[in-house]
Design a binder for these strands. Structure first.
Length: 260
DNA sequence: ATGCCGACAGGATGTCGA
């Protein structure tokens, strides 16, 4: 089973690029973020034509997450628990069953959190704390779980072109990195780092200042696997070439092959 | 020190992203 995550930065604008990538990469399950549309405006027909079932947790203008799956999507849950008053569409969970077993998978769009020192940053940290609480609960099932998406966190210096340039940014704050480590310390593993220790492996390049041309990127899109999920991990990679296409998203897909 | 670019809503330009 091949799973993938991609922050598309508007599914409306990215529909052509998305269908082209699906045809080429042939993932079984895809988590999308920043679809930036309401459920009724999600172009489900275009994906159904390629053999995908769709689950959508949309929002007008901002955020919005979705799951595409060639396998039936079961037990679809469109939010994190205990989100009193949080109306952002940033989490969508479902269960899929492959030939060798089930996978619980979530599409995650963690808050950006900039600027630091504002309620946006405290919202980011509290949202990640809620995610961690939910992630901990999921471990009790002792099943393969994949929490995949745009975490808006640069884990380490080797995950950005110029660490000094990101020191004041919410994506690189000690509290942000600690929030990710807290989830990892529960028992989740960064699938990419389980297969690749190289520096300079990015998933995002800003549209501005020639960031792509100069390879000024950051690695912020992550595939986190529960212990049982990690047991099934065969390979993990970044589809970097997608950043070169017509009307690209500023993020590229990250994928993992699981023995499921 | 800030904008750079791009998407969105709305119908100009401000907000947001990272």
């Amino acid at each position: 089973m091949k799973i993938a995550t991609w922050n598309v930065n508007s599914i409306k604008v990215r529909l052509e690029a998305a269908t082209a990538w699906l045809k080429e990469a042939k993932p079984d399950v895809v988590a999308l973020q920043e679809i930036k549309c309401m459920d009724e405006n999600f172009p489900a027909e275009a994906f159904e034509a390629l053999g995908y079932n769709c689950a959508v947790h949309g929002q007008k203008t901002y955020n919005g997450v979705a799951l595409l799956s060639k396998l039936p999507l079961e037990d679809v849950t469109p939010r994190l628990p205990s989100g009193d008053g949080d109306d952002h569409s940033r989490y969508l969970e479902a269960v899929v069953t492959g030939a060798k077993g089930t996978l619980r998978i979530a599409s995650i769009y963690a808050p950006n959190g900039n600027p630091v020192g504002t309620e946006k940053f405290t919202y980011k940290l509290s949202w990640l704390e809620r995610l961690g609480g939910h992630a901990k609960g999921l471990l009790k099932n002792e099943e393969p779980v994949a929490l995949i998406g745009d975490y808006n966190i640069i884990p380490e210096d080797r995950d950005c072109y110029d660490p000094k340039a990101w020191l004041g940014d919410a994506l690189f704050q000690p509290q942000s990195k600690a929030a990710l480590r807290t989830i990892e310390n529960l028992g989740y593993t960064d699938a990419f780092r389980a297969r690749n220790q190289a520096a300079g492996q990015y998933t995002f390049w800003d549209y501005q200042a020639g960031a792509w041309r100069k390879n000024h990127g950051i690695r912020i899109d992550h595939i986190l696997l529960s212990p049982q999920g990690l047991d099934r991990l065969k390979d993990c990679g970044i589809d970097k070439h997608v950043r070169e296409g017509d009307k690209p998203s500023d993020h590229v897909p990250v994928w993992a092959e699981l023995d499921l």
